[in-house]
Design a protein around this nucleic acid. Structure first.
Ligand SMILES: [Zn+2]
Ligand SMILES: [Zn+2]
Ligand SMILES: [Zn+2]
Ligand SMILES: [Zn+2]
Lengths: 142, 142
DNA sequence: GTAGGTGATGTTATATCATTACATCGCGTT
DNA sequence: AACGCGATGTAATGATATAACATCACCTAC
């Protein structure tokens, strides 16, 4: 990396990304639904990516930087759309099973509730996953 | 099934399970950490189970009955240990990455927070996943 | 400038998790 | 007997993820 990285994170900025990392990030950012690693690979065949590992390695880095999230219940990935890109402590995802839209939500009551739970169980969380699968506002109409 | 099943769920009771379903459930209940479908298959080779599908079909049924939970972040399964086995509306799991222990937690503040989020987003959840990966009380000592 | 370190890359093979497709069986109902 | 229907057995395949190894680009130390 380039000189001052105190803690990784903060704002890596797309300019610091390598070619493969940029390709993967741009693909995710341009998608309107989560993509699997193999989805991404398919879309980047034309750019010279041929092996899954090229995508997984880029994803690992982007996850590290906080620019991408993994949706565990889908085995898929989305670009971070967190408004303000704050602490990212406990983000919730509302995933529409009909249209595939994903809303990224931060909520202090949720953070508080999770914090209270971990305190009372004396559990030290490293990563917390909150995913709601269901129907978005639009798709409930139909 | 046998006569009166109003809504599935409630308490299927192990006596209603088929042989394969019982084998899989007993294996999960006896384990002290989550098991993958292939873990279960390995342990049940001696009982005549040979193909993944035999395990996955039993798991599907047990999940349906609410007797087993799938941990999305591990692609693994645990027997339900919910004290009282209440509504199961929004269960949180605290998963120790060191020893593999899993605590199943229900908390009304968490349910409230999630409920508030879905209301304000007009999102209709069908299934909610809350998984915390980290270190349990015991493992923080070491 | 040469040697070494480090992180990204390319490629092949393999591991792990899950489903499709199809034939069969048991058992209660008609 | 004929049928429906859920569970079962088996083989093949699909989908997701990692291991292993060689190479390259770049920076730094000597
Ligand atoms: Zn985010
Ligand atoms: Zn939708
Ligand atoms: Zn439970
Ligand atoms: Zn532990």
């Amino acid at each position: 990396m380039n000189g001052d990285h105190h803690h990784e994170h903060a704002h890596a900025a797309r300019s610091d990304l390598t070619r493969n990392q940029s390709l993967v990030f741009d693909t995710l950012e341009g998608a309107d639904a989560p993509l699997t690693a193999y989805n991404i690979l398919d879309r980047l065949n034309g750019e010279g990516l041929r092996a899954p590992l090229q995508v997984y390695r880029a994803l690992d880095k982007l996850l590290d930087l906080g620019m991408v999230h993994r949706l565990e219940s889908l085995n898929a990935f989305v670009a971070c759309r967190h408004p303000g890109c704050a602490t990212h402590e406990a983000v919730a995802f509302a995933i529409c099973d009909d249209c595939g839209s994903v809303a990224e939500i931060t909520d202090s009551s949720l953070v508080d509730a999770l914090d209270t739970i971990t305190r009372s169980a004396d559990f030290k969380p490293r990563k917390t996953t909150v995913e709601m699968r269901g129907l978005c506002s639009d798709c409930q109409a139909a």
